[in-house]
Design a protein around this nucleic acid. Structure first.
Lengths: 117, 117
DNA sequence: ATAACGTACAACCGAATGGTTGTACGTACT
DNA sequence: AGTACGTACAACCATTCGGTTGTACGTTAT
């Protein structure tokens, strides 16, 4: 999957920060792997107050990892794999940078006379 | 690149938290893409105190994204692409979860009688 | 030997984080 | 109509974060 990553630094900060919490990672895991759940259904699974889970969902939503759609008195939370792909794409980009450097080092080592100036 | 992701939740928290800062992402970008740099060389590039950059490097180091090796009075900072791969692997895993779910939904829609019980 | 450099580390500060409880309000059930 | 449910939101609290300055100490250069 190829993903163009032109998210702002602030958006990336929010995105990675959202992923930097075990409870939040667990929430997106559940959401991506099957269950579309209301906030209270999600909250029931964790050993903390409803409000705390509500805040976690809000963080995920602001990061774009999750969307909420109203349905009756409930809010159904759905995972958003696109934003996840953005994060992965950036990491892959960084790895690629490393690989490029590495192969360049290889070339330098293979070529005894470096083509400088 | 296939990466087995068996990092503790705490380690993943540290990893993603380290990536959730523009300055720190910039540091790893520089390190992976060419320059092995001392802490002060790095610090010179940013509009903040040496100590602040030092702290950022420390966060990256605790997350395993970077290593420091002493060389004379300097500490040379190097990027560690392996840890980056761990983060990417986890995201890919989550995306895969979504894809699996999606194809299962496809199957359910294609098969009018769901194979339940 | 002395001065300059590179680093480590502590103390401090304001803002953000992750949690709590309490209140308010729309929706659904009886 | 009244009660229970699901959500939103504010206020509060302890801790962490991202930054600062200052001090100490080993290494390099003069």
């Amino acid at each position: 999957m190829v993903v163009r990553t032109h998210l702002s630094n602030a958006a990336l900060d929010r995105l990675f920060h959202a992923l930097a919490d075990t409870t939040r990672r667990d929430i997106v895991t559940r959401l991506l792997g099957g269950e579309d759940a209301s906030v209270s259904t999600l909250a029931a699974r964790y050993d903390m107050s409803f409000a705390a889970v509500q805040k976690h969902v809000a963080v995920l939503e602001e990061a774009g990892l999750v969307t909420k759609r109203p349905q009756g008195r409930e809010r159904i939370v759905r995972g958003n794999p696109k934003q996840l792909a953005h994060a992965r794409a950036l990491l892959q980009q960084l790895e690629q940078l490393w690989i490029a450097r590495f192969s360049q080092l290889d070339a330098i080592l293979a070529e005894p006379r470096p083509p400088q100036e």
